[in-house]
Design a protein around this nucleic acid. Structure first.
Lengths: 339, 339
DNA sequence: TTGTACGCGTTATCAC
DNA sequence: GTGATAACGCGTACAA
C-alpha cells in the first residue's frame, strides 16, 4: 500500500490467489467460484482498485482515444460542434483529444502525426483553410484509423463525411434577397480554398443567375479570416465604391456584423438602404440592432452525428462498409437586417 | 511487415542484433558503435518506425497527458483560455485532454474520475458553478497529480491558482458609473456559489459604499446561467419595476447584452437613460450599437500561465515548492453603452 | 475452478 | 560495444 496504485497482483497476494484469478473475478469470468469472486470484488472496492488504463491499452493495442482536429475553438461554430461530439463520446468507452491547427496546414500535419504516434483509434477532422492535400489523413487510414471529415470537405479523400449543404443555404439566402427587391447583391466570401467558401459562392452565383441578375465582379470580395477584423476592410472597399451594392451576403455572422458596422459608419440605414445576411446564426446575432438575418446550421447535431459515425466504424472493426456522406440542410433565418 | 506497426524487435531481427541495441542506437546512447547506430537509424527511417507511446507510458507510469476541465467551451471566455493552454502545451512533450462538465458538479466528479483512471500527469480545472466541495480534486492530489485551478477559485483547496481580480474589476466599473453621475446602480449577478460572482458582487457593494451610495436590495438580481437567455427575465424584472435603476453592472457581456435588449424594448435610450457595463470583453461586444462598455480580462495569458505552472510542477517532480497564486488585473473598457 | 507462463513494446541493469 | 533479462500491469491459452 505504498505510493503506487493498487494492482491485481496486490489483491492476489493479499488473498493468496493468483493474479489471473483476480483478473477473471473482476471481469465476471463464468468459470469462477462465487465466493472468490465476491472476496476479490470486495477487496478491490475496499482498496479502491482502478484498472491500469495504460496497461490495457498496450495489451489491446487500442488507446480508447479519438482525436478531434479543428482549426480553432473560439468561434461558437466549432465549439458547439465539439460540444456535440463530446456529449456523444462521453457516453462511450472513449475519450476525446482535441487538437487545434490555427488554420495552418503545417500545424495540421504536425497534429496528425502526433495523433498517429499516440495511436488514437479514430479521428474527426475539419481541415484548416490552407489544406489542399490530404495525404496526412490518408496516412491515418493506412494505419487502420478511421477518419471522419466534418463541415469542411476534403475533395478527393475517401472517408466518412458529415457536411452542410452550403450551396443550398447560400442559394436560399440570395434568392430571398432578390425576392425582397435587392438589385445589386454583393458577396463577402471566405478564404478561397475552403469547400464552404466555394459552395457558398456557387450558391450565390446560381441564385443570381436563376433570378436573371447580372453578376458583377466588383461585388465579390474575399476575407482573409473569419474574425470581425477580417471583414472590415473588404466591407469598406465594397461599400465605399462608386457603385455600391444594396445587399450583402456574407460568409459568416462575424463578417456580416463587420459589414453592418462599416455600413452604418458610412451613413447607410439598415435594412432600408442595404440588406445584410450572414451565415452560422451565432447566439448573439439575434441581439444586434437590427438583429442579423442569417443562415442557421445544425452545429450540435453535426457534431453528434460525426461522433456516432466514428463510434460505429470502431465497432464494425474489420467490416468494410462503404463510406457515408451525410449532408445537413441549413435554414434561412430572416430577421431585421434585411428587407 | 504485416498490419502491425514496426517495432524495435523488427529492426533488431532485420539487422541481426538485439532489441536493446536498437533502443540504445535510437536514443543516442554514448556507448554504441557509430556504424550500428547509423544502420539502425537508417532502417528505422526507411521502415517509418514510430516508438510505441503506450508501451512507454506503461513503463514510465506517465501518460504525458494533461487534463483540462472546464464548464463549457461555447463562450469565448473559456475557448480563449483553452487556446492559450493549448499553445503552451503544444510546444511541450505533453498532450491535453479537454473535458466538459456542463456546469454540473456530478459530471465534474465523473470527469475527474475518468482522468484519474487515465493516469493523466496533471490537471487544469475551472470548477462548475455548482461545485462546493473539492474532495474530487484532492483525490487527484493524493495520487500525486498536480492540480491548477484557474479563473474560478476553490476556497479552501490547497493548489496552484491562476485567478483574475474580479473584485477590482467590479469596483472599477461601478466606481466609474458613480463618477459618471449614475444614482441608482443595479447588479445582475451570476450563480451565487461561484467565486467570481461573489467577488464581483463584493466589488459592486464596496464601490457603492465608498461612493456613499445606498445599497438597494431590489437592485440586485441573479441569473441562472451565462447565456443571453438567462439574462432576459432578471433584466426585465429590474427594469420594469416601479423604481428602475439608471445603470446596470452585469456579470458578463452576454447578460449585459440581454439587459440592453430588454432596456431598448422598454423604451430606454442607452446610455442617456441607463448605462450598461458588462464583464469579459467578448470580441463582438464592441460591435453592438451602442458598443458595450465592459471589463476586459487577459484570457489568453491566463490560459498560458496556467499551463506553464503545470509544466513546471511536472518538471520539479518531487520538490515541494509552496503553491502559487497568481492574480491577473482586469481592465475597464469604456465604450458607448455608458455615459 | 484455479494456477502458470507468456506477450504487448520499451528501457534499465547487469553481464560479457 | 552489445546481448540477455527483468519489469511496467493486465488478459488469456494452456495446464492442472
Amino acid at each position: 500500500m505504498k505510493k503506487g496504485r493498487v494492482t491485481i497482483t496486490d489483491i492476489a497476494r493479499e488473498l493468496n490467489i493468483a493474479p489471473s484469478t483476480v483478473s477473471r473475478a473482476l471481469n465476471n469470468h463464468p468459470a469462477i467460484k462465487k465466493e472468490t469472486k465476491e472476496a476479490v470484488k470486495e477487496l478491490a472496492q475496499q482498496l479502491d482498485y482502478q484498472p491500469n488504463f495504460l496497461a490495457l491499452s498496450l495489451l489491446r493495442k487500442k488507446s480508447n482515444t479519438i482525436g478531434v482536429v479543428v482549426p480553432e475553438i473560439t468561434s461558437h461554430f466549432f465549439s458547439a460542434i465539439i460540444t456535440g461530439i463530446q456529449d456523444v463520446i462521453a457516453n462511450s468507452e472513449y475519450n476525446i483529444m482535441i487538437c487545434l491547427t490555427n488554420e495552418s496546414f503545417e500545424e495540421e500535419v504536425v497534429v496528425i502525426k502526433k495523433l498517429l504516434k499516440m495511436q488514437v483509434d479514430g479521428v474527426l477532422v475539419s481541415p484548416a483553410s490552407g489544406t489542399k492535400e490530404f495525404d496526412h489523413f490518408r496516412a491515418l487510414q493506412k494505419n487502420g484509423i478511421p477518419v471522419v471529415v466534418f463541415d469542411r470537405d476534403c475533395p478527393g479523400l475517401e472517408a466518412d463525411k458529415v457536411l452542410v449543404d452550403d450551396y443550398a443555404g447560400a442559394f436560399q439566402a440570395v434568392e430571398y434577397l432578390i425576392k425582397s427587391g435587392c438589385k445589386k447583391i454583393a458577396h463577402l466570401g471566405g478564404p478561397p480554398n475552403l469547400s464552404t467558401t466555394k459552395h457558398r459562392l456557387q450558391g450565390f452565383l446560381d441564385a443570381l443567375k436563376s433570378g436573371n441578375m447580372s453578376i458583377c465582379e466588383e461585388h465579390i470580395a474575399y476575407v482573409q479570416g473569419f474574425s470581425h477584423e477580417d471583414g472590415l476592410e473588404p466591407a469598406m472597399t465594397l461599400l465605399s465604391s462608386s457603385n455600391p451594392p444594396d445587399a450583402i451576403f456574407a460568409m459568416n455572422d462575424n463578417i456580416a456584423i463587420s459589414a453592418m458596422h462599416v455600413a452604418r459608419k458610412l451613413g447607410y440605414n439598415i435594412p432600408e438602404d442595404i440588406s445584410i445576411v450572414g451565415f452560422d446564426d451565432e447566439p448573439h446575432s439575434s441581439f444586434f440592432r437590427p438583429s442579423l438575418s442569417t443562415v442557421w446550421q445544425p452545429v450540435y447535431s453535426l457534431g453528434m452525428l460525426s461522433a456516432r459515425i466514428v463510434l460505429q466504424r470502431l465497432k464494425e472493426d474489420d467490416v468494410q462498409r462503404p463510406f457515408r456522406e451525410e449532408v445537413f440542410k441549413p435554414e434561412l433565418v430572416i430577421r431585421g437586417s434585411s428587407r
